[in-house]
């Protein structure tokens, strides 16, 4: 089997794109903002040649620091906004490259279908996790952690397609 071809045939590798996106975020250009610990970790991961899976270690870093002062749920919701932004930008970068790939015109559609299916799956799975907490006080935190970890895993999966 020949090695998989890069989605980014036209010059921009996804890892590079992620590094550019992360480094260009306002939090790095101006005063650090929440979630600083997570952002610093992501920046280090993007700059190194490390396995993309190391990004997983960055999940919930700022939330852990924050929850000494605030409830877990509010900390995690704020950190999740950062990860959602990173996922959106990663997808936009992928779609932009796919749109220029005239050899594989169905690539962008395939990504869109996959992304929509992923969103439905994560919502359903994390809801099941919440239900499995049987109404306990940990239900909402578990659901949020589930969603946040899946967003990070999705970014890693998209990087793995490179």
């Amino acid at each position: 089997m020949r090695p998989p071809r890069s989605v980014f045939r036209h010059g921009l590798a996804l890892g590079t794109a992620l590094a550019i996106l992360v480094l260009s975020q306002p939090a790095f250009a101006e005063a650090p903002q929440f979630p600083q610990d997570t952002q610093v970790c992501v920046r280090a991961a993007a700059q190194s040649d490390a396995d993309p899976a190391t990004l997983k270690d960055c999940a919930l870093r700022s939330t852990r620091a924050c929850q000494a002062r605030e409830p877990f749920v509010s900390c995690a919701e704020r950190e999740m906004e950062f990860w959602r932004g990173l996922l959106d930008q990663t997808l936009a970068s992928f779609l932009g490259a796919a749109a220029q790939d005239h050899d594989r015109p169905h690539l962008a559609d395939a990504l869109s279908r996959s992304q929509k299916a992923w969103e439905i799956y994560v919502e359903a799975h994390c809801h099941a996790v919440e239900r499995a907490m049987l109404g306990g006080s940990g239900a909402a935190p578990e659901e949020l952690s589930c969603q946040l970890n899946h967003i990070v895993a999705r970014i890693i999966a998209l990087q793995g397609l490179d």
């Binding site: 690539l107 990504l111 279908r113 299916a117 992923w118």
Partner: peptide, 14 residues
């Protein structure tokens, strides 16, 4: 549904 869509994407890339 997600697994099918994701693996279709992987196949589209290849």
């Amino acid at each position: 549904a997600y697994a099918e869509a994701q693996c279709d994407l992987v196949m589209a890339i290849n």
